[in-house]
Design a binder for these strands. Sequence first.
DNA 1: GAGGGTTATTTTTGGTCTCGGAAATACTTC
DNA 2: GAAGTATTTCCGAGACCAAAAATAACCCTC
Lengths: 409, 409
Amino acid sequence: MRTAADIRRMNSFAVVRAIHANGGASRRELVDITGLSFATVAAICTKLLELGVIAEVARKRAPAGRPTATLSLNPEHGFLLGVDIAETYVHVEAFDAALEPISSTQYDIDTHERSPDQVVERVKSAIAAERARHQGRALLGVGVSAPGQVDQVGGTSVFAPNWDWHDVPLRDMLADSVDAPLFLDNPLKSLAIAEMWAHPERRGQDFVVLNLGTGVGAGIAIGGRVVRGRMNSAGEWGHMVIVADGRACRCGSRGCVEAYVGAPGILQTLREAYPDSPLLHGDDQTATIAALAAAADDGDPAALDVIERTSHYLGIATASIVNLLNPDIVLLGSWVAELLGKHLLDRARTHLQAHALAVPMAAVAFELQHPRGNSVSLGSATFALEGYLDSVPDGTTDPETTPRRRTVG
Amino acid sequence: MRTAADIRRMNSFAVVRAIHANGGASRRELVDITGLSFATVAAICTKLLELGVIAEVARKRAPAGRPTATLSLNPEHGFLLGVDIAETYVHVEAFDAALEPISSTQYDIDTHERSPDQVVERVKSAIAAERARHQGRALLGVGVSAPGQVDQVGGTSVFAPNWDWHDVPLRDMLADSVDAPLFLDNPLKSLAIAEMWAHPERRGQDFVVLNLGTGVGAGIAIGGRVVRGRMNSAGEWGHMVIVADGRACRCGSRGCVEAYVGAPGILQTLREAYPDSPLLHGDDQTATIAALAAAADDGDPAALDVIERTSHYLGIATASIVNLLNPDIVLLGSWVAELLGKHLLDRARTHLQAHALAVPMAAVAFELQHPRGNSVSLGSATFALEGYLDSVPDGTTDPETTPRRRTVG
DNA sequence: GAGGGTTATTTTTGGTCTCGGAAATACTTC
DNA sequence: GAAGTATTTCCGAGACCAAAAATAACCCTC
């Protein structure tokens, strides 16, 4: 952001985003959306058309005058892979260059298959399966999300608590299985970036996506940029303390949000209050949470009690974020939110209201996220798309949100 | 940040900052610091010299070669006022255009003098006193910090809990007493901006200044920008919950950080554990905290116990920030930190370590802030300086940190 | 003491790039 | 062919950078 070329890159990037957000736009519309001059928009579009990043997909004829050429991201330009490495599965999804999902492959990971080599093997075969489906099309990039602390510049998993991984060089391990740039990041950052691409108004907002799963965390974006922190570890909302000297957390601390709001924490709340509850499916989190949701639908008092207790903690933990960051919007996402969200939302909002200051409370929207498919793989693919755009000669980039590029393979 | 002029403004701003941070610099040094080309630096400096914003203050002669012209912010160019409206006093400080303090006036505010008119009267007379001291010099701008929720764009105090103010139009009320642009903001933001100007390396870091006084809060800066949130209310760290259903807080919630770590909270801890302690000076916070510090110096076990308990809560509350934001540095400031800091710091760090995740913990520096004088008035004056630079024709600005300009009077 | 040599700092010049505004051009319907 | 809208093209202004030219000392010799 120092020389004229940087301006062109930023404006070029803004045009690409506007086209994507609009699902296709004419040059005139782009002028209105981006605020750039007609001349500039025309020049940028010409360049992007030459590169094949965008294409003229339709001409809208009007009663009079030259018909409008609708520009859109060029789905023929190639495809992207978004990889979501989670604690229990590997999900690999293919997207066209307009970020529309095309196909996906998912493999479960057994609890005992936890070594880096075993997991990487799974990832590789899922990638190979998707790669094979799209023979002949150019692979523009691969984005990979891995749980825990991830060094997105170095491409390593610094620490994954659930598998006890330390400094696993995931990008290098995967490099020989893909002939395209590979971007590694953390699911929280993927969620935030996906939200920004799917909802262009988010660029001008400060927002937080709360990820409610086995682990919990927050994807934070401020001023149109994903918050990463010094070590790309920002967003560990799950390990904020809400009960001093409270429940032991798997992180070694006590009273963490995750110990109450994470799926195992919800199970623990259920087990402590109703040790013999028929809703308990042993340690099977998904089954138990699903049973809880079904029972709550039927008005089961025990289920509603557990949900109320969970909402209490969720509301408090959300209040801390609302007070600290004063965001425009807080979203609840991931599988626990999908199963229990409708029961949690209003109850948690009540507790949020009781603990948040009036001014930030009045300003915040507290809602369920409505994902199209797997947001994490979408976000990972988005990182790959940004990386690709960044790498294009005379290309387009947002120097703030794009991870520093590092081509592999 | 869209056209070439924006680039010039940003680079111009970078040059001003570099000159200030260095306490004067040659053009050659500016090239190294800013990364700009020599030609660009020369052009910018010529312009700034013409405007009188900077001046050539010295020529360093070397054993050979053309002597180096040292450029520095031009203190003769005019002066700034920084106003710190606090709960118990009004502090007005004059700074030259190089942000060096020149003089200051402070008036106490009695507990019963809490109406907007009364407080504004105090502020006006303090400003008048400082104004009178610098007759004949140009007043470039006035920065005002007011406690509570402040709308810095509209220039109003939205809500000040300690005085029960609602929507007080402070800027308009003060406008007729100053013939210069007036900028209103919140002390937390002032602290953050002051820290950035005083320590240039902070621009590239994510940092948090914890303000430990009667109320507590956090000045947050991410990516060189002060975090404001939707309503400029970000930073209310004092009202994050660390003890679910804990102590009642004056905000109406329970278990807030402030209820434990704010000065009244520390007094409460002391009173609950040692009801007859000689350290207690009734409700006089300053006297009691000072007595606590003195007793701790002497190894008094009761004082050390209270400090240990406070450190526990402080460490937990800091851990939440470290986990959520993964900052490079967390600083402790304000009068409680000045009095008790040396006793709190290492103890709190122990608790921080116990509650923070390993990766962000390893990355963070946890230190006492070393302010030169009143950081809040310095920061307020800095907002005024930024506003002034922004207003200069062909001037310099950082569009991100500068509050939108709004000239009054 | 005067004048040329040295050396590091600044200033100028020339080339390339971007943006915006306005005029010119393209494309379609009536 | 006229009318009407959508793009493209054509400047001019301004910003950056690289490199050449100018400047302002000091130092040393004559």
